[in-house]
């Protein structure tokens, strides 16, 4: 009985250690897989990481969608209505992608400041606005209002 109990203790210790290692590994991998969201203003201000994937979102600027060359590469501007970032994407855009629509792109910033996306998301609802995009638009709008007011008071 004693031996059996000892064996069980080993089993428990082994299991706890195994799970501990696995969970530690899981959490560190978790941190590497987090993708932060940045608005175009934040990207231009240099807040976004240079060598890490992140997400950028906003409205697709009217008239900015261009097809490059003869393949499937598209370039367009994404704006929070203060600043805008140029996004390049090779592949088929989602059904609801169009100018004026709120979108989110996953990818990396290239040295020349162009955001190279490996995924572009536009939700399946015309009135839908990704909440991150809505929040950053609102913030940009508030900042814009504050600036005009400031201008008005200084004049």
């Amino acid at each position: 009985m004693r031996a059996a109990r000892k064996k069980r203790l080993y089993l428990v210790v082994l299991m706890v250690m195994g799970i501990g290692i696995a969970v530690g590994f899981a959490l560190s991998a978790f941190n590497q897989n987090l993708m932060y969201f940045y608005s175009p203003s934040e990207v231009l201000a240099g807040d976004a990481p240079k060598d890490h994937m992140f997400r950028v979102g906003g409205l697709v600027t009217d008239g900015s969608v261009q097809r490059l060359a003869n393949d499937l590469t598209v370039s367009f501007d994404v704006t929070d209505q203060l600043k805008s970032v140029t996004v390049e994407y090779t592949g088929i855009l989602p059904d609801l992608f169009r100018e004026g629509q709120g979108i989110i792109a996953h990818g990396k910033l290239r040295d020349d400041g162009v955001f190279v996306a490996d995924e572009v998301l536009a939700k399946h609802d015309e009135n839908y606005m990704p909440p991150e995009v809505a929040a950053s638009l609102k913030q940009a709008h508030d900042e814009g209002v504050a600036r005009t007011q400031q201008k008005a008071t200084t004049q």
Binding site: A22, A26, A29, F30, M35, F37, E132
Partner: peptide, 18 residues
């Protein structure tokens, strides 16, 4: 702490591990 999303490679890695 910021607006994040968890990339699906992470979920895949977890499942492939366990």
């Amino acid at each position: 702490w910021g607006k994040i999303s968890v990339g699906f490679p992470w979920f895949n890695t977890m499942f492939v591990t366990f």
